[in-house]
Design a protein around this nucleic acid. Structure first.
Length: 490
RNA sequence: CGGGGUGUAGCGUAGCCCGGUAUCGCGCCACAUUUGGGAUGUGGAGGUCGUAGGUUCGAAUCCUGCCACCCCGACCA
């Protein structure tokens, strides 16, 4: 079970099936590819939610909630949007079941809906249909709304964490009076995501722009953050779209400007999902299990007592309670694992599997010496330290772990980002070294598609900080003015 | 939807070719000894062998249909 944890998404899936998330429990194709998020895994998601939610509020946004079901006709209003999502929608056609007389429950054909309902794959259409009623004047703008919700995309192939049929996410949908303001909003939210990924998840990301081919269905411009996993494959971790006036036109959302002119409003949408849990696992974990960044870990410190008698346990418990009390004001969660049903060695392994950043082991020997043994999850180092000043030490170590797992991921990405100038080298790097490949591209969809067919690599993004540089497309040799980032991706 | 494969205890499996009522490991329960890195011993519980039919004295095993799942591809946060 411990082999190859860092190599492929499937391996993580097997591992965490036991621990964080369980998928495919029912042997029914209908729920194929859905996931059950177990309490510990959900606690990670809740932490993520809390942080992101605050970031959204700090940038002026409010939460709202829109219906799960979307009338089919809404979808056909924005042409490219339909095209993008039509092939992966769950459709509600009836509203009642009946007994067929043979003890079987069947769909009541008399209860057919006049218009089918689509289970939302994303909420642009129903939200813009609603915004139409909210917006008349520039005084009503901007609208800065976020929704926490589940969405369903009937993917042909699912992959635990990364592409489940149903997933949890947040989707921000904003309406603005000017294009400039909407563009600024899309940029701002991309920066929020990048900030979250790097400073909370400890996952370095490339901020970039999607090529036309990879752009969101209905967007004029799609910004994204791209992360690199330990197996050398890229993962799109978040997107922020400038939608232009596409949805406003499709849903006829107009406003009167200060100057008295009638115009369609400008829109953005942006989202991140439970895929971030997958990103977290695949970016940091090792063969011993999960490695969580302290800032998102549901439990920061676990105390494992090693004892023979009830008196010993009681004394260790007192020490544990002191530490819990001392760290509580710092929002540091300490778990005292006093279970008598498992031995210390088992507990060590179990908490490592769960990625708890710090473990403190205390036994009779320590109680005599006034020490504890403190062990870091990220680099597995152990040291025996005095009990005095322990809480300060814990705070310092947690900061250090947060910084060092980021640095480790950053160094990995740096090592696995390669500049190439010819196609043979491009293919060789993808196969042997893996990771991001920075190369020139002639800017055409045809070239991008051919490269994808031949190498399975896609343009992850055109980095926002890409320098102007004269070069030639690796495939066609045509002139190119900047490098783009290719990779095989999840 | 194409191409391959698999269904046996909570999980992972042996048995199938060559028919005789199911093997082993993990896990679970009890007791004892243990407890500074996933304990050990003894005993125990747990199975419509995916499903429906056929062949047979007898089917996990052979035959047929159906169902489900997995892997590879097209699609994708």
């Amino acid at each position: 079970m411990s082999k190859g944890i860092t190599s492929r998404a499937e391996d993580y899936s097997q591992w965490y099936n036991e621990l964080v998330v369980k998928a495919d429990l029912a042997e029914h194709s209908a729920v194929r590819g859905c996931m059950v998020i177990k309490p510990y895994g959900y606690a990670i998601w809740e932490k993520m939610q809390a942080v992101l939610d605050q970031m959204f509020k700090d940038t002026g946004h409010s939460n709202a909630y829109f219906p799960l079901f979307i009338p089919k006709s809404f979808f056909s209003k924005e042409a490219s949007h339909v095209e993008g999502f039509a092939t992966e929608c769950a459709v509600v056609t009836h509203y009642r079941l009946k007994n067929d007389g043979n003890g079987q429950i069947v769909v009541d054909e008399d209860a057919k809906l006049e218009e089918e309902l689509i289970v939302r794959p994303t909420s642009e259409t129903i939200i813009w249909n609603t915004y139409k009623g909210w917006i008349e004047s520039y005084r009503d703008l901007p609208i800065l709304v976020n929704q926490w919700a589940n969405v369903v995309r009937w993917e042909m192939r699912t992959r635990l964490f990364l592409r489940t049929a149903e997933f949890l996410w947040q989707e921000g949908h904003t309406a603005h009076a000017t294009a400039e303001e909407a563009v600024a909003e899309a940029n701002q939210m991309l920066e929020v995501y990048a900030d979250f990924a790097e400073n909370w998840m400890a996952v370095p990301v490339v901020r970039g722009r999607k090529s036309e081919n990879e752009r969101f269905a209905g967007a004029l411009d799609t910004l994204c953050i791209e992360a690199l996993m330990q197996d050398g494959k890229a993962l799109q971790a978040g997107t922020s779209h400038f939608l232009g006036q596409n949805f406003a036109k499709a849903f006829d959302v107009k406003f009167t400007s200060k100057e008295g002119k009638l115009d369609h409003v400008w829109a953005t949408s942006w989202g991140v999902s439970t895929r971030l849990i997958g990103a977290l696992i695949m970016a940091h974990s090792d063969d011993q299990g999960l490695v969580l960044p302290p800032k998102l870990a549901p439990i920061h410190v676990v105390i494992v007592p090693i004892y023979k008698t009830a008196e010993e346990l009681e004394k260790i418990g007192e020490l544990a309670n002191q530490l819990i009390a001392a760290l509580k004001p710092h929002q540091i969660t300490v778990k005292f694992d006093a279970r008598d049903t498992h031995r210390p060695g088992f507990k060590f392994a179990e908490w490592e599997l769960k990625g708890v950043p710090l473990r403190i082991a205390v036994g009779a020997r320590d109680m005599q010496n006034g020490t504890v043994e403190i062990s870091r999850r990220d680099n597995q180092t152990k040291e025996t330290v005095p009990q005095a000043g322990l809480s300060d030490r814990v705070i310092g170590l947690l900061d250090d772990i947060q910084a060092s797992i980021y640095q480790k991921a950053y160094d990995f990405r740096a090592e696995h980002t390669t500049q190439v100038n010819d196609y043979e080298e491009f293919k060789r790097v993808l196969d042997e070294k893996t990771g991001f490949v920075s190369a020139h591209w002639d800017g055409t969809v045809e070239t991008e598609k051919r490269i994808k067919e031949e190498t399975k690599a896609t343009i992850r993004c055109i980095p926002l900080d890409a320098k102007e540089e004269v070069g030639n497309c690796i495939l066609t040799g045509k002139p190119s003015s900047r490098r783009v980032l290719f990779a095989r991706a999840y």
